[in-house]
Design a protein around this nucleic acid. Structure first.
Length: 197
DNA sequence: CGGAAGATTTCT
DNA sequence: GAAATCTTCCGA
């Protein structure tokens, strides 16, 4: 299977987020390799997007990788308990990214079950915090090059995916940014973080 | 320098 | 519905 190359990431955050649907996220660790098919993402567009950590357009120790070149992993701790994995999009100086919200387990499922302490496939990676536990993505993955051999994304070249666009979740504080239609999911997929109504 | 709040999950 | 518990932002 072909790895996504740098050019894929050097586009705007919305395009990258939408195109990531159906791709395979892979993480190679000492214990073994885990892979998951991306079924849900959200785009965060930096300045002008109040839900983004880069809203103020000033790099901090935590967000500095967002301001670098696309194709790197942005991992951060949320609520002091869980990690969330993002893919940096666009070129240097443009803090846009795609948050990976849900995966469909593909490889290393026994490893995921062991890390999560859960057997139910549908609950292994159905949320940003969960999938990071299942894939063993922690701050040590911060800033990894997705074009490298440890953490990367493969392209299975699936055709005719049915992608649905919705509003983003859990950002009620972000005023008008709440209503931006920047969440992308594969229609009808049973591994989404929130079930379709 | 101190307090507040958040791109979440899990259990009651 | 609340707790767990870290990083960052903003006001004093």
């Amino acid at each position: 299977m072909k790895k996504l190359d740098r050019d894929f990431y050097l586009r705007d955050g919305i395009t990258v987020a939408r195109d990531l649907i159906g791709k395979i996220l892979a993480h190679r660790t000492r214990e073994g390799i885990t892979k998951g098919r991306i079924v849900e993402t959200e785009a965060y567009m930096g300045p002008g997007d109040k839900a983004s950590h880069a809203y103020r357009n000033t790099p901090t120790k935590r967000t500095v990788v967002q301001f670098g070149e696309g194709g790197f992993a942005y991992v951060y701790l949320i609520y002091g308990m869980y990690y969330c994995m993002n893919v940096v999009a666009n070129g240097p100086g443009v803090p846009q990214m795609a948050l990976i919200r849900a995966l469909q387990p593909v490889d290393g499922i026994d490893l995921m079950q062991k890390r999560r302490g859960v057997d139910d496939m549908a609950k292994l990676c159905s949320g940003p915090g969960k999938l990071c536990v299942a894939m063993d993505i922690t701050k040590s993955a911060y800033g990894l090059d997705l074009c490298g051999g440890e953490l990367y994304i493969e392209d299975p070249r699936e055709a005719d995916l049915d992608i649905v666009t919705t509003k983003r979740l859990n950002i009620d504080y972000a005023d008008e940014a709440r209503d931006f239609p920047w969440r992308f999911i594969e229609k009808g997929n049973p591994f989404l973080s929130v079930k379709e109504k």
